[in-house]
Design a protein around this nucleic acid. Structure first.
Lengths: 137, 137
DNA sequence: TATGAAAGACTAACTAA
DNA sequence: TTAGTTAGTCTTTCATA
């Protein structure tokens, strides 16, 4: 992981379909070098996977969830990650313990997820924020 | 968005570099159809972007940023989205106005981002939470 | 790093619903 | 008129030197 790797990664993060030849031009090296480095990062697990991000639903929100003190958050959050319309589940430090990032079809969908969260035995509080707009880094 | 689109998306989510010909075989259609549909989903914004997920940084965090009342959050957040190590910038409802989701090499990296945020003229407060663990939905 | 073969993607003309 | 197919061409990737 040197500066060159990082620059290649930055380009791939913005568009993972950028041809090796174009990346090579941009960072000032050869196509082969770029290819070898991407392959190596892939094998080493630096690159987890090539994927697409989708915007299926239209209402995004963060649902912050507090759980009882005697509860294992890992188990609860794994369960929540399986719910439809949930993009990420994060275990976080701070007032709340778990944050769900959700992408629902409408506000009713968000509301159903909040309800679903509150119905869990382990959950003692929720706090929701709508995501009004998003910029990708 | 029909069943075929969804099946194509599922394959791309798992590996965005799967050739169109291979996707076509798997879903039982022609290469051209797959390509047309991916292009259409791309234009329609169903597919936001082709990207890589990395395991480089190991310290993820949410930096919640409050800005002055007379400030246009869109402009500030667009600027922040360009910063290194910033994955998403969300404009949100609630106490704070902007949330940065960051993926830094270490806690020092997170701290530098917090400092950078606080140095902006428009920023009046920040509040940071470390993301301790993550599950993908 | 340079080159050529192989694989994949793109163009455009065509067909069917 | 729109979605799908296919053949030919161009681009990218990959192995070899």
């Amino acid at each position: 992981m040197d500066e060159l790797d990082r620059r290649i990664l930055d380009i791939l993060r913005r568009d993972a379909r950028t041809p090796y030849t174009e990346i090579a031009d941009e960072v000032g090296t050869s196509e082969g070098t770029v290819r070898n480095r991407v392959e190596r990062m892939n094998e080493d697990g630096v690159i987890e996977r090539f994927t697409v991000t989708t915007r299926t639903g239209n209402v995004k929100a963060m649902i912050e969830v507090g759980v009882a003190v005697d509860v294992e958050t890992g188990e609860v959050s794994e369960r929540m990650a399986e719910w439809e319309e949930v993009d990420f589940v994060w275990m976080v430090s701070g007032e709340q313990d778990i944050v769900l990032v959700v992408d629902a079809a409408d506000t009713r969908g968000v509301n159903e997820l909040i309800t679903q969260a509150r119905e869990q035995d382990e959950v003692v509080s929720t706090k929701t924020r709508l995501i009004l707009d998003e910029h990708l880094g």
